[in-house]
Measured scan of single mutants.
Amino acid sequence: HAATELTPEQAAALKPYDRIVITGRFNAIGDAVSAVSRRADEEGAASFYVVDTSEFGNSGNWRVVADVYKA
């Protein structure tokens, strides 16, 4: 099962156990969220919340930071 994305309210009520950072070329924010979901799932997380997204220069590469939560 894939890790689910939390709302800001849900994330605020929970304590993350880790923070992950992924970088890559994403065509849309949805693609980045899917990549975070896969990584969170690999780490055994039940859910995640994207904290920050930023573009690296003009290369089209993105850096996505997310907190991950157990259950």
Rank of each mutant, 00 (worst) to 15 (best):
H1G: 13
H1N: 09
A2W: 12
A3I: 11
T4S: 09
E5K: 08
E5H: 10
L6K: 01
L6D: 01
T7W: 03
T7E: 04
P8K: 15
P8G: 11
E9M: 11
E9H: 08
Q10C: 13
A11P: 02
A11K: 04
A11T: 04
A11E: 01
A12V: 08
A13N: 12
A13P: 06
A13Y: 12
L14P: 01
K15W: 08
K15V: 14
P16E: 01
P16H: 03
Y17V: 03
Y17T: 03
D18C: 15
D18N: 13
R19D: 00
R19C: 05
I20V: 06
I20L: 07
V21G: 00
V21P: 00
I22T: 01
I22M: 05
I22S: 00
I22C: 06
T23K: 06
T23R: 07
G24I: 10
R25Y: 13
R25W: 13
F26S: 01
G30M: 11
D31N: 05
D31F: 08
D31S: 07
A32R: 04
A32Q: 03
V33C: 08
S34Q: 14
A35S: 05
V36L: 10
S37W: 06
R39S: 04
R39G: 01
A40R: 02
A40K: 01
A40P: 02
D41W: 15
D41Q: 15
E42M: 11
E43W: 14
G44Q: 05
G44S: 05
A46S: 12
S47P: 02
F48H: 01
F48G: 00
V50K: 01
V50P: 02
V50T: 01
V50N: 00
D52M: 13
D52N: 11
D52R: 07
T53W: 15
T53F: 15
T53L: 15
S54C: 15
S54W: 12
E55Q: 13
E55H: 10
E55M: 11
F56H: 08
G57I: 06
G57R: 06
G57F: 07
N58T: 13
N58Y: 09
N58C: 11
N58K: 10
S59I: 09
S59Y: 08
S59Q: 10
G60Q: 06
G60V: 05
G60M: 05
G60F: 04
G60Y: 04
N61H: 13
W62K: 03
V64N: 01
V65L: 05
V65R: 03
V65G: 02
A66S: 02
A66M: 07
A66E: 01
A66T: 01
D67W: 12
Y69W: 01
Y69D: 00
Y69A: 02
K70W: 09
K70E: 08
